[in-house]
Amino acid sequence: MHESILTHARSRYLWVALALCLVSIGLYVWHDPDPVPNGGTWLGYTLGTIGALLIMWLLLFGVRKRSYSTSLGSTRGWLSAHIYLGTALILVALLHCGFQFGWNVHTLALVLMLLVIFSGFFGVYVYLRYPALMTRNRENATRDAMLEEIAEIDQNALALADGIAPEIHAVVLRSIENTRLGGGVWTQLRARDGSDIAIARIRDAIAQRNTQLGAKPAPLKAGQTIIAMVDFLADQADDKQTEALRRLIDMLSRKRSLATRVARDIQYQAIMEIWLYVHVPLSITLLAALLTHILSVFFYW
């Protein structure tokens, strides 16, 4: 049955990671170097080697993820190990340096490593939380289906508006042009789309229309809902176009709810991907820093 990355194989790698931590701590406590623990002692070297190997192996996950025909374990198993052992790395690295920090390349490597790891924590949180949110938001439709429906509503709304009045048509057209889903990273993450503006425009147009018809301008209160507007219409306008306007508003509200869902869908997806754009580049930088760290240790000791 389904197993998550945390529970994979009865959390086997959690135990491996814990064991690694315990052994490291035990050795660290038992080992009493002179003057203080640091990377230069035999334990420091050992933990450093373990840490460096771990980092190399963590980086290899990117390769494993793309080796589709390998029979070397499942990707899920690799990721489960990646997470637990990656976390254990914090301890290994701290014990390796004996809690000695400074303004140098060594500490830079450590900080980079911690950044990578904490971005990883965020990733795990996102992976465990967002999928279910996304499913709920979709209500069994696919994103393409929702986009298609939006496009259809646009078409129908345009046709309907065409029969009402030129200015309404113009408004609907502009609102369609202004609906932009997705867009730049920032827009994706904010989950906004142009629908609110569109509905507001229609509202203005209706008010304007009523003015033209000689009716009193509607006392549009802030926060007035579409439903209230429909009632208002029924009161004020009495020609047969009212019905068409009502339907137009129905359509546009449906569209807005769809657009909101699509925007949220895109947002969720973006969140599930965006952190990797921090995690991976930082881990490459970490690799560079790590190599510099090792080189400088050997050459300038």
Partner: peptide, 9 residues
């Protein structure tokens, strides 16, 4: 095997 999260079975 490729699913990183164990969603696919």
């Amino acid at each position: 095997r490729a699913c990183p999260t164990g969603a696919a079975i």
